[in-house]
Design a protein around this nucleic acid. Structure first.
Lengths: 242, 242, 242, 242
DNA sequence: AATGAATGAGCGTTCATTCAT
DNA sequence: GATGAATGAACGCTCATTCAT
């Protein structure tokens, strides 16, 4: 019985390993040759498996992209959650900075994941899976925003922050989101930023974020606290990136 | 001689008109059916010219995209320049706001152009023209930045703004650029932002920009001046969008 | 020994049940999705058995079709035999009408079976099994004809019918066969016969058959006897279709 | 100008010749390997043209079948019309026999055309073009029937024929249609009819037709006139098959 | 005996590109 | 200079069949 169980387990394990391998390959290819360059033929050729086998795992090219996007989403969520519950945060703004650090870490550690998100966003992959797309994208965006919004609301509750008239919590989050998404997109897709004077875009991004929140008067202001240090601390303590 | 010249001129004019028509068609198709849907066959079918003729103008499908991106760049530059030299600006920060308004107007007025920029940025179109790409992208980014940088430098010169230690003019510009590019990308590619709480993303973007510059202590602060009004004024006076 | 026998019997019974189940499924699928839609994968997916197991029963996709055709043949033969030995027949022509009723009943009761016959007839399934085909098809046609021929010969023997010069028993049978096969094919494959004026094709078929036999001077003529009533009677009494 | 015209004419002629060649090939392949065996790859391989070229003529595999079916329909209609207007017909039943001869000639002269009709009828080709199918099939059947119905109505008008109670003109036509379609199908798809006793199926079909019409009391009866001779005469005089 | 992972040839179709006219 | 027929590699996908377990 044990043998049988083991057998099943091994087969299943092999299956999952194969699936992971397909996704890994797809992720890399997506990064290297883009959505257009990603083809089932190429994936099959690059693996030691045949086309048919790939199709036994994913019945669509789109399903692969979908799976990839799901992975990316889950990874990011996981990291955001870890950051949002960081025990070292003394203020609500610390917590916000921690999430910023998580976003930074995410792109650095999993650049392919970020790539996938951009492709999913820009491509017309979804024409077929249109209905699912709307749901998936929205869930993705919604859950990510919920974490950030939670921290903002906490700040409001604690009196660290007041919103200007007519602005909602989500508007603030949208600002941070745009800034981060835009920055990483430019960093990822622009070669030679240095040559146009941007030596350290990550530092510039941190600065911009801090100043934006200063503008909102989220206390403590960046003039009162070194959030740069907070970023580094989070990356060290939460993500072991020292 | 005059006749000959005229003839050449007419031919040349016809040639340029044809070229413009091809690009116009390609632009529309790109927006409607995406990069994947854009095909030389389809372009030819939709025109009164044949495929061969189109190839006489653009020896590549990629060349067409390149030309489209060029157009977009030129259009944006033109608008940025108009904004940067707006006579109604009383302060350096007014001028900065004017450029923000130009960016807003650009996306609203020429959504296809913005589309093209995103495609160019995300696609692996460039494999063949990789060398040209680096140059082109850099020129694109460089010229746009130069205008914005100019305004920042003016602010520094006039004492309206001091940069924090370690930050360059380009870092500030990068922040604005990221924020804007990110915001418009999200707006363009997310369906149903409203459902996740972002009712007026453009307003949120303006706010974020203003607060970011407030963070930099660029005077007058947004608490001292209604830049929202400046945005509207520029769109009215410079771009006739009232 | 008895135990062993029983075991073998049970196994064999299970095997046959499985085989029957495969065929049942295939028959239904053939009708629903056509020959093109019939696939080993789909059959396996729809059953609780795997592809490999199915291949243990039928080493070919074609073999399944062959088996299906065999079933159809057997079913029809069975019904023809029942009709040919109908105790209610008073004349040889009654007996002939009874077979006509059987053919009618067959198509009505087992439309899938008729479907299979047509597919087998039209498809080039047989390339591989070509040798078997010739045998099988001939056996099929031969045995069916034998029954009908038997009735014709009986009529000749009893003096109800004389054949015109140069015509054989088989020629008469061929006429009936053609008429029936053609009619059911048209009925099955034509949508909206009614719109082209054929409101009741079954009645038209009965009429045509009767008149053809009248032409042969097979007594009693349809003017002397209501064969329509005979048809209904057979369907009621022999096939319980009332 | 003449040169230009000629050029266009030649190109167009070449195009049509190519198209005809594709259809000819497809027709033969359809007959030899059936609908399933017909593939764009095979057509392309068998011609000296590439797959792309084939697709420039027919944008679908189905379009080819459709074109083939159209050809068959037109050919048959043409032959039916020629038969229906045969000047040698002395009676309405002569005219009917002439159409029978046309049907015979059609299958003999263009067996592939008849093949196409059967395939179109039996296959699930039409799943995609389902809407068009209904129309096309109906037009096909309708136009063919109209000619035959016309002759029947003429017979009624001239008093050569009375219909039994409850039977329509179309019912009679349906009988003839079924008989012919069925007979040719069996002849085409059954190997070795002779071995099961049907030495001359064409003769048997003629006989069956004649007797069916005799049953309807369509005068002159086949006992009063040698319609076999009429058949041969039509094939000779109208179709030059002597 | 039963399984289902793996195969790989084949399918219909698209499309950038070339080149004879 | 303009044309569009011709190409052929590539695509996403299917499926009958095999075979190690």
């Amino acid at each position: 019985m044990a043998t049988l169980d083991q057998k099943i387990t091994r087969k299943e394990r092999e299956r999952q390993e194969r699936e992971e391998k397909i996704l890994e390959l797809a992720r890399t290819m997506l990064r290297e040759v883009g959505y257009l360059g990603l083809s089932m033929d190429r994936i099959a050729a690059e693996m030691e498996y045949s086309k048919g086998t790939i199709y036994q795992h994913f019945c669509n090219k789109e399903e692969i992209i979908l799976a990839l996007a799901n992975e990316a989403l889950e990874k990011r969520l996981e990291m955001f959650e870890a950051a949002a519950t960081w025990s070292g945060a003394e203020t609500s703004r610390d917590r916000m900075a921690a999430i910023g650090a998580a976003a930074e870490e995410f792109v650095e550690r999993y650049p392919q994941h970020f790539s996938v998100e951009q492709i999913v966003r820009s491509s017309s992959i979804w024409e077929k899976t249109s209905e699912e797309r709307r749901q998936f994208m929205q869930v993705c965006e919604g859950r990510c925003m919920a974490i950030v919004s939670g921290v903002v609301r906490e700040a409001l509750a604690q009196g660290d922050l007041e919103l200007p008239a007519g602005r909602s919590v989500e508007d603030l989050v949208f600002g941070l989101w745009s800034l981060n998404f835009g920055a990483y997109t430019i960093i990822t897709s622009s070669e030679a930023l240095e040559e146009i004077g941007i030596a350290d875009p990550i530092a510039a991004l941190r600065q911009s974020q801090n100043f934006m929140l200063d503008g909102y008067r989220w206390r403590p202001l960046s003039s009162e606290h070194d959030f740069n240090e907070t970023f580094d601390q989070v990356k060290r303590e939460v993500f072991g990136n020292g």
